[in-house]
Amino acid sequence: MQHTPPSLTRIGTRMAQEALGTDRLRTLAGASDPATPLGAVLRQTTDAVIRLDHVQDKIVRKARILHGDLQPIISGQDTHMALSTGVIATDALAIDLLIARRGDLHQHLTDLLATCRSLTGGPDHETTAPEPTAGHARASAADVSLNPAQEAALLAVAGGGVRMNEGLVSHQRRIAAVGIKLATVHALIDKKLVERDTSTRLTEGQALLLTAAGHRHHQCLLAADRTLAGRPPGAAAAAASAEPVAPPRSRR
């Protein structure tokens, strides 16, 4: 079997190299901590690179097999065959499906690499202002407002492991995470903070990922929590509460 040069299959690795200057994403500063925005997105990016390389490798290998199956037809050596076995049509369809999946993976990796550049201070990175106070951090988070349930869902998605599934028979969608409602996830998707990993089918389960805006919002939420945590006892709770305290009732 003819050996396939890595340059033909490692397209995901090459994209990471061109975008970030290295294909060893785990060596980047902050990559070792999945609790940070950069660590979380680099973990997703590494997975996307591996999957894109794998799909491209399968495309090239299947194309080589199909090329070999076509050689007898090209040379006229298949005239003794009375019937077609259907192998060529099956291989061609498989290649078409893989190419479609490669396109989805390529776009997904492109988005992730753009987020990586913004978090690591790459070409797309804008100069960040000093860390905001707790009050301004939540207000400035991606210029969108979230209710408590949406904030909790955004934090869960940032931590990884939240997936959307669709039943094969019922076609009903659900979120495979405790305490997160489907409507809450749809709200985050509408606000362009969360997206589905469409490289897999919904019936198999699609991972929910933060968009670039979602990562910025997540950073602001973390900054607000750090600011509140650094205040004297009692100050964090008072600052986090926006509801006015009703005055005591006067006795008659």
Rank of each mutant, 00 (worst) to 15 (best):
8 L>S: 02
12 G>Y: 05
22 T>P: 12
26 R>T: 06
28 L>Y: 01
33 D>Q: 10
38 L>S: 00
43 R>D: 00
47 D>F: 02
48 A>M: 04
49 V>Q: 12
49 V>H: 04
51 R>T: 08
55 V>D: 00
67 H>I: 12
70 L>I: 10
78 D>N: 11
81 M>W: 10
84 S>H: 07
90 T>D: 09
91 D>E: 09
93 L>R: 08
94 A>E: 06
97 L>I: 11
101 R>D: 13
105 L>P: 04
106 H>P: 14
108 H>S: 05
110 T>K: 11
116 C>G: 04
119 L>K: 01
121 G>H: 11
133 T>C: 06
135 G>Y: 08
136 H>A: 14
137 A>W: 03
140 S>D: 13
142 A>G: 12
143 D>K: 15
144 V>P: 12
150 Q>C: 10
156 A>V: 12
159 G>K: 01
160 G>K: 02
164 M>Y: 01
165 N>D: 10
166 E>S: 06
176 A>S: 13
179 G>Y: 05
180 I>F: 10
180 I>R: 06
182 L>N: 08
183 A>M: 13
185 V>T: 05
195 E>S: 12
198 T>M: 10
199 S>N: 15
203 T>P: 04
214 G>S: 02
221 L>M: 10
224 A>T: 03
226 R>K: 09
230 G>E: 09
231 R>W: 11
231 R>L: 13
234 G>H: 04
234 G>C: 02
235 A>P: 06
236 A>W: 09
248 P>G: 14
252 R>K: 10
